[in-house]
Design a protein around this nucleic acid. Sequence first.
DNA 1: CGCATGCTGTCGACTGATTGACGGCATGCG
DNA 2: CGCATGCCGTCAATCAGTCGACAGCATGCG
Lengths: 224, 224
Amino acid sequence: MLAIYPDSPSVDLARTLDLSGYSWKGVATAELMNRLQPVDGWMGAVVCCEDDPEGGWAMCRALRKLDRPVRRILVLVTGAQIGDLEIRENLFDDFLLSPFHPRELEARLRHMFYNELTAPSSSVVEHAGLRLNLETYQATFGGSPLDLTYMEYELLKYFVQNPGRVFSREILLSEVWGYEYFGGARTVDVHVRRLRAKLGEEHAHLIETVRSVGYRFGASKWSG
Amino acid sequence: MLAIYPDSPSVDLARTLDLSGYSWKGVATAELMNRLQPVDGWMGAVVCCEDDPEGGWAMCRALRKLDRPVRRILVLVTGAQIGDLEIRENLFDDFLLSPFHPRELEARLRHMFYNELTAPSSSVVEHAGLRLNLETYQATFGGSPLDLTYMEYELLKYFVQNPGRVFSREILLSEVWGYEYFGGARTVDVHVRRLRAKLGEEHAHLIETVRSVGYRFGASKWSG
DNA sequence: CGCATGCTGTCGACTGATTGACGGCATGCG
DNA sequence: CGCATGCCGTCAATCAGTCGACAGCATGCG
């Protein structure tokens, strides 16, 4: 996921990114980036300095200071702004003269991430906008973080790793909790309830109740 | 000293290099470069691919295989040749579209070598304003020094080198201390506490507690 | 050597969050 | 309607993390 500043980029930039197959999000402030952060962090950022160089460079400085810094920064500058680059070498990884040839942007992005892509990808489980990063114990839904407790996380992980299947409460107890069934099947209900609450009203239906049987995550594929 | 291929570069290129203060030498073959090599090695190379792409790329491959490889390679390509870059990512460090603006060439060279100059200091680990100098065992936060003890430093180093990942106390004990876990998992807690104290109240959150799991450095899920 | 200082690991108490349980209520189904 | 099942509000027990304090140990210094 790329971050683009300012939050409504030029049509050319947006189109080129789309055509190149990058997923991206416009961001207005660095503070927002901490909040919108994808589970596996920001892949990179494109900062447009043409119209508002001060704002652009301030953004670059902020990007470098994020708790989890952006891995690569590409800045767009006009020919007249080339001189600005000299005292800001540390704030960007590559630059591109604007107006630009779409294929040059594409090539620069690709080259910038060339080294990154070889890096081992962290183990991320994903399903329908929901992402669980098993290494960092973080969960996000559509980019916004979910603040889950340990048990909620474990239960959700089990669901996400087995989408579409129905599990009885007893199975869930033994698989997620490790118990032998001991009477407290209601415990599962409660945790499902809390999970649904944290998923938000509109996505609560991701965990379906199958009456008299148990629960299922996602995918009633046939329903239209 | 820069190596320029082919050995008689265009007037524009030669003049821009001269005006930018670079000393350079035109070279026709990589074999020559071993012989003409300056005492401190080649600083970098500019390879012109516009007229003879095959020869240019062959030169790049050769440059990468020198006994003492060139530290940075900039290739000149035409707009029509951008596509050639994709399968040769490993052969260059930056590229420049020809015809070029002299100031862009100057800026790219400067930036390429800026990275080169800072890269060797890989004995410095940095993350979000926090800087650890592995050679001198010093740590600074935003310029002001942190007075860390040995164990605090080791722990912080481990965290900084593995940002975003969650580590259980047992893992930390075995990785940082070298112990086999033997009951004293609370030791980790205490050192984390002391680290947080020294990071100062406003940055203490850099080390996050993941309840029931362990600790994580950076990557705040600081949702407002 | 004797002492002071600082680092390291351990312990017990405190605190707040998590968790599982219960009873009442709503809803679906025959 | 009557029953079964699931959902919700609430609560107490438990647990994990944090904190303050302290003892053992190494190091530095007079």
